[in-house]
Design a protein around this nucleic acid. Structure first.
Lengths: 343, 343
DNA sequence: CTGAAAGCGCTAACAC
DNA sequence: GTGTTAGCGCTTTCAG
């Protein structure tokens, strides 16, 4: 045992009466050791409380088994749950998660890349974070695979996993139209993000197919306060909307709160539809009709894509879109005689 | 540059025409280098895109600057926000967070300790996780400081940071009594956790001081469904409570949902008080009167305690309790003519 | 102030 | 199978 109280393979080797490499082999999955040797070593290791030093191993192998997970904000419930699932799936695969909280700006991301690279992460997952071209270049140069979760970046040459956002928006359009809504407004997700843009585009295209146009489109910036203000603003006109599609659940809750605060009934006066289907959407207070992002499938696809790229650096980037069903609840009037199940 | 495309200090040294140790010194905060040398080295480093390898540095120094953060579940909003703040504060101090999601069981924690130790973390923060004696022994043996966030463990000899839970419960008792409530029930936090026990004890003691007893106490297990069932159960008797103190906000939301679902009005028929003051408590749909855990102060205290222990291994464990004010909102009837502000 | 040399704890050839 | 040997990329004495 060295000065710091840490037990080394050497200590175990001494006690077990074998070489230090023998000890290493016992703790290296695919190595060949005589059962008897392994037993001796394990016994000695147990007695000493030995544990291989992952950092030392990482230096040699060039694989740290650490994944950098970069997240912007955790107040939208979708992300904590995503972080939880991503961690769990990664842990199950023997990886570990180095967590980075980032402001959603290119400069901040830049700064984080320094640390990410310094810790020799095997791969990076970004959740709802903007990636500058500089960053992608740095990653490519360092040969570190990166997958964007819930954010696309057309033309960046980076892998991404999202739900089928445009299609989701289209489903909402069709559903609201079928429900007899005439004035469908959209408080959109941030138009600087692919998710916000795609959902808005889907809605608009869906309406257009029926010869309609959105009653109004306001950028809610994925921010509660902005969305609430937008809702008040929409209702404060001569012809208020009879339905509002909100760019994500997080904002939809704020919209419902602010509608109720001014005496507007949901869904009798205005139907509200969200996007994400976070757990809270099912709670009694909101009972929100929303487009479900299939979290586990997205998480699994993200991890799969990342690990595939780690194991085969030549692998091309891929952009996956996962189908997102509409979940019918009580916040939006449904088509008469319509199906009760999700679309 | 070695085969893997990684740039080493050696490469920089060559290009700068200095020794490798000179390069090291340039990137080691407290080392003495001639300005001219430093300039040459930095230029070369920049040109090559060099970044010191934290893992190699960690091996030498015995300090990884990694903190293991162990969290149980992220569905109670209190924890994601805590994780966010903890990460931010730790990042600001030059530390990095290795995130572990754990089932809240001793066995699981055991398994995680393996990984924690293997990665040579400098310290550990657990958020609402039960720690077995085995684990504390392992930590002590490995000399790794550990601070429990939002969980106490009397007699474990471990540091912890919590809010003043018992006092919080007492405040609720006094507030509800002052509001004229006669039958005060408690759907408690999990009685296997210090937080749940202390808040319940505080309430009961607070009532006792006024010569009262709780109308009923049911363990809500920090679980939405359990809490909702408890609420329905409480109301389904000849003399239902006129106030319910719920062990945390997460359960309180479920309680309010289930009360409303059976036509019970909050606060006209029953007052509801929570604990935590998660962001959602302020949202219109719940407008929950609750005891605020001062998150930032708890986070800062946690990080401070941990870093103090890292820097001075001899330092004794400390158990901090941070005062938690009662925040008055609309879910509970207030004392007549009472103060509008928090207590 | 700077370079040479000795490792941190481990894995990966390489002989035996 | 197993021990020996050579490093992974870096920090840190130790001379100069």
């Amino acid at each position: 045992m060295n000065a710091s109280g840490r037990v080394t393979a050497q200590d175990v080797a001494l006690l077990a009466g074998v070489s230090q490499s023998a000890v290493s082999r016992v703790f290296t999955p695919g190595a060949s050791v005589a059962p008897a040797t392994a037993a001796k070593v394990r016994a000695a290791a147990k007695r000493l409380g030995y544990r291989p030093n992952s950092l030392a191993r990482a230096m040699i192998t060039g694989k740290s088994r650490i994944i950098g997970l970069v997240v912007a904000y955790l107040d939208n419930q979708f992300y904590p749950v995503a972080v939880e699932k991503l961690s769990l799936v990664l842990q199950a695969q023997g990886y570990h998660v180095l967590l980075f909280m980032a402001a959603n700006t290119a400069g901040e991301m830049e700064r984080l890349m320094e640390d990410l690279l310094a810790y020799q992460v095997d791969g990076i997952i970004t959740a709802s974070v903007a990636i500058s071209n500089d960053v992608t270049r740095q990653c490519a140069q360092a040969g570190i695979p990166l997958v964007m979760f819930n954010r696309g970046q057309p033309g960046a040459g980076l892998s991404s996993v999202t739900s089928a956002n445009a299609l989701g928006g289209r489903k909402v359009a069709q559903f609201l139209l079928a429900g007899g809504h005439q004035r469908i407004a959209h408080i959109s997700g941030w138009q600087g993000a692919s998710t916000g843009k795609d959902r808005a585009r889907g809605l608009i295209e869906g309406l257009a197919e029926a010869g309609c146009e959105p009653h109004a489109v306001i950028d809610g910036m994925y921010d509660r306060e902005t969305a609430a203000m937008a809702a008040r603003h929409l209702m404060d006109t001569a012809s208020p909307p009879d339905a509002i599609f909100v760019g994500n659940d997080h904002m939809a809750f704020a919209v419902m709160d602010s509608l109720r605060a001014i005496g507007v009934r949901v869904p009798q006066d205005v139907s509200v539809v969200g996007y994400d289907d976070v757990p809270m959407a099912a709670w009694g207070a909101y009972d929100l009709t929303t487009v479900r992002q299939p979290l586990m499938r997205m998480v699994e696809a993200t991890v799969e894509t990342l690990l595939a790229q780690i194991n085969d650096p030549e692998r091309a980037a891929q952009n996956l879109e996962i189908d997102a069903p509409l979940i019918l609840r009580g916040s939006a009037r449904r088509p008469e005689g319509g199906d009760d199940a999700g679309v």
